Deep mutational scan, measured.
Amino acid sequence: EDEVKKIVKRLIENGVDDEQIKEIVKRQGVDERIVDKVLKELK
């Protein structure tokens, strides 16, 4: 989960929008619920 957080944070800093972040992270095989949780925490 910490790995996911790092990735998502980097994507947000690069101006990637939420939908794209979800797609990218899902392609890495991460559960969507984890992605949603991380996005909420970082906003």
Rank of each mutant, 00 (worst) to 15 (best):
K5F: 10
V4Y: 02
V38M: 08
K5D: 02
E23H: 08
K22A: 05
L42Q: 03
D17L: 10
E23N: 09
Q20V: 11
K40Y: 13
V8R: 00
E23S: 09
E32F: 07
I24F: 09
V30I: 15
K37W: 08
L11I: 01
V8D: 00
V8G: 00
R10F: 15
I24V: 06
K40F: 12
K37S: 06
R27G: 12
E1N: 08
E1G: 05
V30Y: 15
D36Y: 06
K22V: 09
V30C: 05
V4G: 01
Q28G: 09
V30W: 15
K40Q: 12
V16K: 09
K5I: 12
L11D: 00
G15D: 04
E13V: 06
I24T: 05
K5Y: 14
L39E: 00
E13P: 01
E3S: 09
D36L: 13
E19N: 10
L42G: 02
I21M: 02
V38H: 02
R33S: 14
D31V: 04
V25M: 15
K5N: 04
Q20N: 10
G15P: 00
E23P: 01
I7R: 06
R10P: 04
I24Q: 06
R33G: 11
G15H: 05
D18G: 06
K5P: 01
D18R: 10
V35A: 05
E19W: 12
K37N: 05
R10H: 14
E3T: 09
E13W: 08
E32R: 05
E13L: 12
I12L: 15
V38L: 12
Q28C: 11
V4H: 01
E41G: 06
L42K: 01
Q28R: 10
V35T: 05
K9G: 06
V38C: 04
Q20H: 11
V30D: 01
K22E: 02
E13G: 06
L39G: 00
E32L: 11
D18V: 15
K43N: 08
Q20E: 13
V4W: 07
D17V: 08
N14A: 15
K26Y: 06
K40N: 12
E32A: 12
V30M: 11
D36N: 11
V16H: 14
K40E: 11
I34D: 04
K6I: 11
E3H: 10
L39I: 11
R10D: 14
E32Y: 08
V30L: 13
E19A: 13
I12G: 02
D18W: 15
I34E: 05
E13S: 09
Q20P: 01
V38F: 07
I34M: 12
K22G: 02
R33H: 13
D18L: 14
I34G: 02
E41I: 09
E23G: 05
I24P: 00
V16D: 03
L39F: 06
V30F: 15
I21P: 00
N14L: 15
G29T: 02
V8F: 02
V4E: 01
E1Y: 15
I24W: 10
K22Q: 04
V16Q: 06
E3L: 11
K9D: 04
E1Q: 08
I7F: 13
I21G: 00
K6E: 14
E13Q: 12
V4Q: 01
K40M: 13
D2C: 05
N14H: 11
V16L: 15
L42D: 01
V4M: 05
G15T: 02
D2Q: 10
I34S: 03
K26V: 14
E3V: 10
L39H: 02
D36F: 06
K9S: 09
L11W: 02
I7W: 15
E3C: 08
I12T: 04
K37P: 01
E13Y: 09
V35E: 00
V4F: 04
E23T: 10
R33Y: 14
N14W: 13
K22C: 03
V4T: 04
K37L: 08
K37H: 06
L39P: 00
I7P: 00
D31Q: 06
L11A: 02
K22F: 10
I34K: 03
R27W: 07
Q20I: 12
E32W: 11
I7Q: 08
L11S: 01
R10L: 15
G15K: 05
V4L: 12
G15I: 02
K26D: 02
E23W: 10
K40P: 01
D17F: 06
V35H: 01
G29E: 03
D18P: 14
K40T: 09
E41Q: 11
V25Y: 05
K37Q: 09
E41N: 06
N14G: 10
K43G: 09
G29Y: 03
K5A: 07
E41L: 10
V16T: 07
D2N: 09
G29K: 03
K37V: 05
V25Q: 03
N14V: 09
K40W: 14
G29M: 03
D36T: 10
D2L: 10
K6D: 12
I24G: 01
Q20Y: 08
K26I: 14
V4R: 01
R10T: 14
K37C: 04
V8K: 00
D36R: 06
E19G: 08
K6M: 13
G29P: 02
K6Y: 08
D17P: 15
R33C: 06
R33W: 15
K43R: 15
E19T: 10
E23D: 10
G29F: 04
D36P: 01
D2P: 07
E19R: 09
D17H: 10
V30S: 03
K37T: 05
K26G: 11
V4I: 14
I21N: 00
Q20K: 13
V8A: 03
R10G: 14
D17N: 13
I21S: 00
D31K: 04
K6A: 14
L39D: 00
R33N: 12
L39Q: 02
N14R: 13
E1L: 14
I24Y: 10
R10I: 14
K9W: 11
E23A: 13
I34N: 02
D36G: 05
D2G: 08
V35Y: 04
G29H: 04
E3W: 15
L42A: 04
L11H: 03
K22H: 05
D2F: 07
D2I: 08
N14Y: 12
E13F: 09
G29N: 05
V35R: 01
K9F: 09
D18E: 15
I34A: 04
D17M: 10
E3M: 12
K6G: 07
L42W: 05
I7V: 08
E32Q: 09
V35P: 00
V4C: 04
E41S: 07
E41H: 06
G29D: 03
V8I: 15
L39Y: 03
I12N: 02
E1F: 14
E23C: 06
V4K: 01
L11Q: 01
E19I: 10
V25R: 00
R10M: 15
I21F: 01
D17W: 06
L11E: 02
E13K: 11
Q28V: 08
R33V: 10
I12F: 10
V35G: 01
V16F: 15
K9H: 09
E13T: 07
L39K: 02
D2E: 14
E1D: 09
N14C: 11
Q28E: 08
R27P: 02
Q28S: 12
E1H: 12
D31R: 03
K43I: 07
V35I: 15
G29W: 03
I21D: 00
E32D: 09
V4P: 01
N14P: 00
K6P: 03
V30N: 03
K43M: 09
K26T: 14
K9N: 08
R27E: 08
R33D: 13
D2Y: 09
K43H: 13
E41C: 05
L42I: 10
E3D: 11
L42M: 08
K40C: 06
E1I: 14
E13M: 13
I24E: 04
D18S: 10
R33E: 13
V8Q: 00
K26R: 13
D31N: 08
K37I: 07
K37G: 04
R33A: 14
R10N: 14
I34P: 00
K26M: 15
V38D: 00
K22W: 07
L11Y: 05
K43A: 10
Q20W: 07
G15Q: 04
Q28P: 02
K40G: 08
R33L: 11
D17C: 10
I12K: 12
D18F: 14
Q28N: 09
I12D: 01
R27V: 06
L39W: 03
K40A: 13
K5E: 05
L42C: 03
R33Q: 12
I24C: 04
E32M: 12
K6Q: 13
E1V: 12
D2K: 07
V4N: 01
Q28T: 13
E13I: 08
I7D: 03
V8Y: 01
L42V: 07
I12S: 05
E41Y: 07
D18H: 12
V38R: 00
K5T: 07
E41D: 11
E32P: 14
K22P: 02
K9L: 14
Q20T: 15
R33I: 11
K43C: 04
E19H: 09
K37F: 06
